[in-house]
Amino acid sequence: MDVLYFAWVRERIGSPRDVIETPPATVMDLVEELRGKEARYAAAFADLDALRVAVDQELTDFNASLGGAREVAFFPPMTGG
């Protein structure tokens, strides 16, 4: 499963993408796994209110299941237009 990062989340982590071999059950489980990796991940995921998540390119919430998911993306609130 691909995990993508955009905007300041990408900058804070220092990489646009990770590949996770065994996807955890939910987005929150994935967040916990990433937080445990390194300090830069813990910093990026410190405040979940400042983050949004998409699973397979659809906006969702942190309780969403990752069953069958191919791609998860984390990013700040969007600023289009």
């Binding site: 955009f6 969007m78 289009g80």
Partner: peptide, 23 residues
């Protein structure tokens, strides 16, 4: 909808450096 539901992120580059625009 475009403003807050389309996955774009703006960053302003000024004399003081570059900063992500907050929603």
């Amino acid at each position: 909808y475009l403003k807050s539901r389309a996955p774009f992120w703006k960053r302003e580059v000024t004399n003081k450096g570059a900063e992500w625009v907050a929603a």
